[in-house]
């Protein structure tokens, strides 16, 4: 047996161990990314094989916490893919405005940059005060950063450029104050956001949503898990509700595709059909 085939067995065992011990289920994550991260953590942890990490993960909870922390924090920007936010402004906001109140679920919000981007957009469209945003992630370390809404000031240039390209109608600097090397977002942007722990792999429906955003999360899952999660979104949306995926993710080959019509294929905006 080749070394890489043995390693494949080790990774399967490690993922099983984590699931059985802690309930975190990475078994249907896209394997290539997860293998890459496990190999990196193997190097950092001083283990010579991946199977050496398994007893540590089972018996040392702090080692596991460190593992999950490093394992699963994707990095994102405010107004990542500005054209998507432009499309939301032009094509989604008018639909949301027909509701007396608006419930939005940002699934897999990570460190919160895109949830706050949506806050800003809703404010500028006079929709914020009747909106409730649920921003969820399974990673508590990421959620803690999200709740604080404080980011490195080195991001300001990118965020500002994105905001402008996204059709922002104000000045981005009005939404944060700079302190030392950090930019702290205004508290007003946090007022209607509830950050909560939710695991797309193991938790269930998040009811009666008008708009669900889940961008660049599905790419980390395999086909089976993608389908499960998309069904979860479909079940969590009201009829006429809107789903926004990452720009390289698609409903095209999923089992729920027929339940949705396309609002904008490039921005990956879909609307759940009435019946």
């Amino acid at each position: 047996m080749k070394a890489i085939d043995i390693e494949n067995i080790e990774i399967t065992l490690l993922l099983d161990a984590i699931f059985n011990r802690y309930g975190y289920d990475f078994r249907h994550y896209a394997r290539a990314s997860i293998e890459r991260r496990i190999r990196q953590l193997k190097g950092k942890s001083g283990c010579t094989t991946i199977s050496e990490m398994i007893p540590k993960l089972l018996h040392d909870e702090s080692f596991f916490q460190k593992f999950v922390r490093e394992f699963s924090i994707p990095v994102t920007d405010m107004f990542r893919d500005p054209f998507v936010y432009q499309c939301i402004r032009k094509q989604v906001v008018p639909i949301l405005k027909t509701h007396p109140f608006v419930k939005i679920w940002h699934a897999g919000c990570a460190t919160g940059e895109e949830a706050y981007s949506l806050s800003i957009l809703l404010k500028e469209e006079n929709l914020y005060d009747r909106s409730t945003l649920f921003a969820t992630d399974f990673n508590d370390t990421a959620l803690d950063i999200a709740k604080k809404g404080i980011y490195a000031l080195t991001n300001a240039k990118t965020f500002t450029a994105n905001y402008q390209a996204a059709g922002g109608i104000s000045s981005f600097s009005e939404y944060y104050h700079a302190r030392y090397e950090a930019m702290a977002l205004n508290n007003a942007l946090k007022k209607n956001i509830t950050f909560a722990n939710h695991n797309l792999v193991t938790d269930s429906v998040f009811g009666e949503m008008h708009f669900i955003l889940c961008r660049n999360v599905l790419i980390y899952f395999d086909k089976i898990l993608q389908d499960r999660v998309l069904k979860l979104f479909s079940d969590s949306l009201v009829h006429g509700g809107i789903l926004c995926l990452g720009t390289r993710e698609s409903l095209k080959f999923s089992t729920i595709a027929e339940k949705f019509s396309i609002i904008d294929e490039t921005a990956r905006l879909y609307q759940k059909k009435a019946v």
């Binding site: 896209a30 290539a32 990314s33 991260r37 994707p74 990095v75 790419i219």
Partner: peptide, 14 residues
């Protein structure tokens, strides 16, 4: 990234 089943996957890792 390339998967064992000869499909592609994408990531936004750092």
């Amino acid at each position: 990234l390339v998967e064992r089943d000869k499909t592609f996957s994408l990531s936004i890792d750092p």
